[in-house]
Computed example of a mutant assay.
Amino acid sequence: MSDPHQHSFNSPIGRIHLTEEDGALTGLTWVSRETSALHSDNAITGLLAETERQIHAYFAKALKEFEVPLAFNRGSAFEHSVWRAMQEIPFGTVWTYGDIADHVGGVARAVGGACGSNPIPLIIPCHRVVGSNGKLTGFSGDGGIATKQHLLDHESDQLSLF
């Protein structure tokens, strides 16, 4: 395993920090400007530049599906199955924790835990997962549920959660 490459940039939902290992995106987090400045590479890799480009295109409403290689360097087999299932949720659509549990053969509470440990939010769209009553639950992004609502609003003006 090679040393990770890292890159940070500003987005409409806060400062995003990306991590790449062995040619695949392995992490996306929201961090403070001070922290991210300490961890950014001086020479950005092609994958990190492409991921940033796609994120900006997403916020410009010019991209609905991210196409970058991903790798899970942590998590259980169950978490990996949940993260892969979340990647199947179409842009502008929400699934419930129960929907994903049915899809992967688990229970909604365990799916919630896997969503909460998603290492690449936004790219793996955990913001598209809601409670059985349509209620928004936690979100790892800066701003929490308000950011989740912002992302859902961004994806669909017609999406009704309540």
Rank of each mutant, 00 (worst) to 15 (best):
L122N: 00
T35R: 15
Q54M: 09
G144E: 08
F139I: 03
G105Y: 06
S140Q: 08
D3S: 15
T26I: 13
R53G: 04
G143M: 07
S36Q: 02
Y58Q: 05
K135D: 15
E20V: 00
D153F: 09
D157R: 13
T93M: 10
L151W: 05
T29W: 15
F9C: 01
N118A: 03
Y58T: 01
P69K: 02
E79K: 15
R109F: 14
N133H: 11
T29I: 14
T147Q: 06
T147C: 06
T137Y: 14
R109D: 14
T35Y: 14
L18E: 01
V111H: 08
G134W: 06
H150Q: 14
A71R: 06
W83L: 10
I145Y: 01
L48G: 05
D142L: 10
N42M: 07
V68Y: 01
V111D: 02
G105H: 06
S32Y: 04
T35S: 14
A57F: 05
G14P: 05
S76E: 00
A114M: 02
A85W: 12
E52S: 03
K61Q: 12
I120C: 03
V82K: 10
L159T: 03
A43H: 11
L152V: 00
K64Q: 15
V82P: 12
R128H: 04
C126Q: 13
S132M: 15
G144T: 03
I145T: 08
D41S: 01
V31L: 15
F72L: 07
G141F: 02
N133I: 12
G105V: 05
H127I: 01
D153W: 10
H39V: 10
D99N: 09
V130L: 04
A85M: 10
F139H: 08
A77G: 11
I89R: 10
N118P: 12
I16E: 10
L159M: 05
D102S: 04
S140D: 12
E79D: 15
E79W: 15
A43K: 13
G92V: 01
S36N: 07
Y97F: 13
S40N: 04
G106V: 05
T29R: 11
Q6I: 04
I124W: 06
P119I: 05
T45I: 00
L136Y: 08
G116F: 01
H80I: 12
P119N: 00
S32T: 13
Q54F: 00
I123R: 08
V82Y: 13
R15V: 08
L28D: 13
F59M: 02
Q158D: 13
A60V: 01
